[in-house]
Design a protein around this nucleic acid. Structure first.
Length: 466
DNA sequence: ATGTGC
């Protein structure tokens, strides 16, 4: 018995040595060569039946190889990306497109689209829409699960609220920054904190107290709360056309959602060790698996929690104003939904994309000093019923810090009559694409109903205030 | 995006 006999049976790599060792043990019992080769052949075709005895080590190696091969086959990328529509392609950088191309090579991908505010993100680009079959990609949703917009329009003129008072109200009723929450005696309860789901997963149970502490707060980066003038161009939901005082906010699921995202993306990566490195951050979870179900539950809880954050912010400020919103709208723009796409039920991931089904209201902000828009979706199929979630960055954070200064940002704000609390150069209006161009690039996707012009804005301080 | 890590 030698290596030649073994390789002839089709054993490779580590299994050759293990087969030889097992054959030696069988020879020691007096068994003949042909009988041993027959046994080896049987072990090779049915390793699961030989997990004990002389062939155990070989059988385990063969089983491991089988599993590995299966992983490779199931995770192999398509040789070419599936086609997808891009809106405002001239506004989208090549590296964001390259990321989308990788996503469209995933074996689970079915359809996709790139919005005009698209730019590079982890895994799926921001402004990317991706439909998959019975699977969910944690980084196809993003770190800030459920990040959302909320607008309250009050039936009073914008001048009703003086700048000094707006500053005071924002300072008093909003909280910004990583790790920030409300002081215990200031906290408001919310039904979302009493949901049964918190007790159904260790990761959720562990995060409940943090969620209770941070509810009603806003984060860092591009999150904001701002008072401004909202102009409605035609009557809508009982409100006459005109210009009104309004409150617009952008916030997500805070530390809770970020921890959920981190937990499940790590889990997804561990389940797809064979996935090509270019797609590592697009590792998915099967919705038929326990892990997939757990993510779906956690993601939707984080989505409801993010909306509850906005509800509390708007409730505090409306109450302080003594006004009730005459018109309000809100939408999540980092989430996955079960939707019918071309007659098939798929999981539609929107990572920095506004749901824009026919008739659906959505909010697309510009920057700290540029207009934001209330839009109505047109349910445009090539966009998978989506629109942009904002203007999108044209300069990354570091590039913005290097290219811009406090003085050019201050001048931009002054020219537009915007007063800012906090904010950093990395969030400068000049770091963003021109919202007018981004809106113009999606006329097939949404209809503009109204325009919000920011007047008094609060953001996190970042590294340095402007 | 988040008060922290392949």
């Amino acid at each position: 018995m030698n290596g030649k006999h073994i390789t002839k049976l089709g054993f490779t790599n580590t299994s050759i040595g293990l087969a030889l060792a097992a054959a030696q043990l069988r020879e020691d019992t007096g068994l003949g060569r042909q009988a041993i080769l027959d046994e080896l052949s049987a072990v090779k075709s049915q390793p699961a039946a030989y997990q004990t005895g002389e062939y155990a080590a070989l059988a385990h190696e063969l089983l491991a190889q089988q599993t590995h091969t299966a992983f490779h086959a199931a995770d192999a990328l398509r040789p070419a990306a599936l086609p997808y529509a891009q809106f405002g392609a001239e506004l989208i950088e090549a590296n964001a497109r390259a990321q989308m191309d990788v996503a469209m090579q995933l074996p689970i991908a079915r359809a996709g689209a790139l919005m005009p505010d698209a730019h590079v993100g982890y895994g799926l680009p921001i402004g990317g829409v991706l439909a998959t079959e019975n699977t969910v990609i944690p980084y196809g949703v993003g770190v800030d699960i459920g990040c959302a917009m909320h607008l309250s329009v009050f039936a009073v003129p914008p001048e009703h609220l003086k700048t000094a008072e707006a500053l005071h109200l924002l300072q008093k009723h909003t909280r910004f920054g990583a790790g920030i929450g409300f002081e215990r005696r200031e906290r408001l309860g919310h039904a979302v904190l009493d949901e049964a789901a918190w007790d159904e997963q260790p990761v959720l149970r562990r995060l409940h107290d943090k969620a209770a502490e941070q509810i009603g707060s806003s984060g860092s980066g591009n999150h904001f709360a701002e008072f401004g003038a909202f102009t409605l161009s035609a009557p809508e939901a009982g409100l006459e056309a005109g210009t009104y005082l309004a409150l617009l906010s952008h916030s997500g699921s805070r530390g809770f959602g970020a921890q959920v995202a981190g937990h499940f993306t790590k889990l997804a990566e561990s389940l797809h060790p064979a996935l090509d490195t270019s797609a590592r951050k697009l590792a998915w979870l099967d919705l038929g698996s326990e892990a997939g179900e757990a993510y779906w539950q956690a993601m939707n809880l984080a989505g409801r929690y993010a909306l509850a954050n906005h509800e509390q912010l708007h409730a505090r400020l409306s109450r302080a104003l003594g006004e009730v919103a005459a018109l309000s709208a809100r939408n999540s723009h980092n989430l996955a939904w079960k939707e019918t796409v071309n007659g098939e039920e798929l999981i539609v991931h929107r990572k920095g994309a506004t749901p824009a089904a026919a008739g659906q209201l959505g909010l697309i902000p510009g920057s700290m000093a540029d207009p934001g828009y209330l839009v109505r979706g047109k349910g445009y199929a090539p966009a998978l019923g989506s629109a942009s979630h904002g203007a999108g960055r044209q300069l990354g954070r570091k590039a913005a810090q290097a290219a811009l200064s406090k003085s050019v940002v201050s001048a931009y704000l002054r020219d537009r009559g915007v007063t800012l609390i906090g904010g950093g150069v990395d969030e400068a209006p000049q770091a963003y694409k021109r919202i007018e161009a981004v809106i113009a690039a999606q006329s097939e996707l949404v209809e503009v109903l109204g325009e919000f012009r920011p007047r008094v804005v609060r953001m996190d301080s970042g590294s340095e205030d402007i």
